[in-house]
Every structure is written in structure tokens, then in C-alpha cells.
Design a protein around this nucleic acid. Structure first.
Lengths: 230, 230
DNA sequence: ACGACAGTTCGGTGCCCACCGAAGCATCGT
DNA sequence: ACGATGCTTCGGTGGGCACCGAACTGTCGT
């Protein structure tokens, strides 16, 4: 039997805006360093340290030390699920929750969705793996190859090698909670997603994060990556 | 996109032990009065008032005024679901979550489970309706009839009419979130559940709240209530 | 009309905790 | 060996909020 103190303790972990922001940032599946999170949340490193301790202590996060860095990420998919369930209370409510509607919505999310600003779900994973298979992404380091660079220039009209202002990494492996496999995040992932949406190859279903591949998108992906996403 | 402030605000509603206790109490599906909840949580009525305001304001609870009483209950099934999801983090973890296992576990919960200390799910609802059909429970007031009293004495060896210490009501209509129908709670519901488990008519599946009717239990319910629970 | 009761509003008190800066401790690059 | 960097520990400060009791409003029973 769960006690009120247990529940309150768990909720208290998320009841602080800074900690909530940290958890939401980690929802992208990456492992972040303590300073990255401190900057993201807009607090001093010492403050972030305390929050990360509490979150790890509370079982929501796990950490891994690597040299002078402390990498932290969500403890397991159930934590991500929990956060998404909580976040779902703020999405414009679907006409009717429960029953068939909920089941199909959930299936749609598994098929394809956006993870912040890039593609996730089966669609995201399939695209990513096709890019690796075609030698556009390096399979070990997850880095953009020269072929990948030309491919992007051709598709986006944007050269990933050009100098850029922010510190956001070009490519980044983002772990997908439903597929349990990595997909493409980072600046390239975002640009790619933006273009797919802009071209009408992928459209949002309703107002949530679920997306669907259009007929045009299906043809385009088959043409450019040789894949079909069931 | 959900903001950290939104998430923190929602979590803060549950981050207080008193409010968490109130929500857990309401998880039994009933509408409680403000004083009942104050007593349950062990705080002054004025304190409870404040908490209830915040919970209603936050959309977790809805209220209904009736004379000088203020009845409050969980806003909708999704809130109950959320609370159960949070509580699930404290249950001993099932061998492996996700996929088929999760689906069957969820189906098992729909079939039968315990709601605090009494039966819920399809099993709980079926038993309750059979008791009403046989005139053991009054269909309108949900009160124990004389026939119901003898039935309980025969089954439990315990007379519900005898004086008892606590203030817990004998019977209580408890709304089930999956079945959307009322089932038997209160002291009688608890005693009944205790006996079914004690007789081996119902066994717990694993360590969670899901329960299963055994062959002996199936025969016993058919014999005493004339029902079969698919 | 009367007290009894459910609930509310309103100050006042005290605790918890998020925050920071400064100092300390590892690790990395040169 | 050196400073730079990432992180941590440690007081100290301030704000938010959970709590109560007292006084008040509205409803119910007699």
C-alpha cells in the first residue's frame, strides 16, 4: 500500500520549476552534463548539483561519471512515460479519452511523433537507420559523413559544415522510449524534421506530437533513402 | 509544448503529504465531504478547505455542494489513472514492463483487482450486482437488507449489525474507474474480500493489485450468488 | 427562534527549501 | 607544473506555504 508520504515525496521531486525543467530537458533521451542542465535551467551550478542529487536519490535519474563530467539521464522508460502522462494533462484534450480513441492515438504515437523538434517513433528510427545504411551517418560515432553532408545540402539547401552561432551539436543520438533504439536528434535532426513538415511529406495529426507520413512523403523517402515505413 | 512551470504546478498539487493523502483517499471513487477528508488527513477543517480549493483549482478534483456539505471527488478517470501510475512506482516492480506483458497485466486489472481492501474491476462489479439482484443489498440506498445480513453471517461468521469501534461505514458505493459502475466498498466489502482471499476463492496475481478467481471460487460464487464471471 | 454543525475567511507563526557565492577538489589540456 | 574547467560542499538569506485558532456565514434540526 502506497503512503501519502511516498506519493508526496515523489511529486515533490517534480514540484520545483527547476527540477521540472531538468526532467523535461532529459525527455529527449540524451544524457546531459550537470553544467548543461544548469545553463538550461538558468541556475548556478551549485544549485543544479543539489537538484540532480535529489532526482537521482529519488530514482528518477541515473548518473554516470566520466572524467570530470557527470552525465545524467532518465532512469528508465517508465520515468519518461510518467513525465509524458503528466505533460499530457496540458495538451488540448482529445475529443474523448479512453477506449478505442486512446488506443489508436497511442498507436499513432508509436508510429511517428516529434521529440521536441526532431522525428521520433518508428518513423524516426527507420529514417535514422536508413541513413546509417546508406553511409550518410557513421554507424559508430553517429557523425555526419561527407556523403551525408552532400545529401543534406541537396535536400535542405543547407550546409551543415558552415559555421553556426549556437553550441547545439550537429547530430546527436537520441534514445527513443517506444522503439528502444537511437534516432537522429541535434541540429540536423531538427532541420530535417522541419523540411519534411515543410514539404508536406509528414503532417501532424491533430495538435499533439503525433505525425503521419503522407503519400508524397512515402514516395520521397523511398526515392531518397530506399525505405518504406509501414 | 508543456512548460516547466506547468509541470511543476501540477506536481506541487501532490507534493504535500496532506493533499496526497486526500487524493489517495479519493481514489476509492467516492465523493467525500470536506470534514471527512480533514479528519482522514489529520488536519484542521480550515486547512483542508485550503487544500481542496487548490486541488479543485488545479483540475484534479471537482466539487458539488449539497446543503451545508461540500462533496469532492476526483475530476475524471484520467486523474485516477495518473495517481495509480504514480503509485505504481512504489509497487515491487513486475519482472519486465512493456509490450505483451503490460497489455495482459492491464487486462488482468480490468478483470479483477483490489481497491484498497475490497474487490473492484469486473469481478467486484459483478459480485455487487448479484447481491443487489438477490436482495442482499438494497438497490436504491445501497444498504444491507435483513437477507443480506443473514447471508453475511452465514458466509463470514460475522454479524454486520454488531456494534463496532471505528466510524467506517458498513457498506459504501465505490465507483470503479474501468467499469464505470459502482461496487461494494466499506467494512462489508473489506470483510468479504478478506474472506474470499482466505478461502482461496480469489488469489492475487503476482504482488500487485490484480486478482484472479480460482476454480473453487468460481464454483462458490455460482453456488452462493448464481453468477459466473467471465 | 434557537443551538448545533459544516464550511469558510483571515491573520499570525514557524518551518522548509531554492538560491547564491565562495572555497575546495578532482580532472583535463598545455 | 600550471591554469582552466566541471563539479561539489558549505554557510547564509529570503520567500513561500502548511498549519492553527478565532471569528464569521450559511444550513439543518428541533
Amino acid at each position: 500500500m502506497i503512503s501519502a508520504a511516498d506519493l508526496a515525496g515523489l511529486a515533490a521531486l517534480l514540484a520545483d520549476e527547476t527540477r521540472a525543467g531538468i526532467c523535461l530537458a532529459l525527455l529527449d533521451g540524451r544524457a546531459w552534463t550537470a553544467s548543461e542542465l544548469a545553463a538550461h535551467a538558468g541556475v548556478a551550478p551549485s544549485t543544479a548539483t543539489g537538484h540532480l542529487h535529489r532526482l537521482v536519490e529519488g530514482g528518477l535519474l541515473v548518473q554516470r561519471r566520466q572524467g570530470r563530467h557527470r552525465y545524467v539521464q532518465l532512469a528508465d522508460p517508465s520515468v519518461a512515460q510518467l513525465l509524458e502522462d503528466l505533460a499530457a494533462r496540458f495538451e488540448p484534450r482529445p475529443a474523448r479519452t479512453g477506449g478505442l480513441r486512446a488506443a489508436t492515438a497511442s498507436a499513432a504515437l508509436r508510429r511517428g511523433r516529434t521529440c521536441y523538434d526532431h522525428l521520433a517513433g518508428r518513423l524516426g528510427v527507420t529514417v535514422t537507420e536508413a541513413m546509417i545504411g546508406r553511409g550518410l551517418l557513421d554507424s559508430v560515432g553517429f557523425a555526419l559523413t561527407p556523403a551525408g553532408r552532400s545529401w543534406l545540402i541537396e535536400l535542405l539547401g543547407w550546409d551543415p559544415a558552415q559555421p553556426r552561432p549556437g553550441r547545439r551539436p550537429l547530430v546527436r543520438a537520441c534514445l527513443d522510449w517506444t522503439e528502444r533504439r537511437e534516432h537522429l536528434g541535434g541540429l540536423v535532426g531538427a532541420k530535417l524534421c522541419e523540411r519534411l513538415l515543410g514539404n508536406g511529406w509528414v503532417v501532424r495529426i491533430g495538435s499533439g506530437r503525433a505525425v503521419r507520413l503522407t503519400a508524397a512523403g512515402d514516395a520521397a523517402l523511398r526515392d531518397r533513402l530506399g525505405i518504406t515505413v509501414g
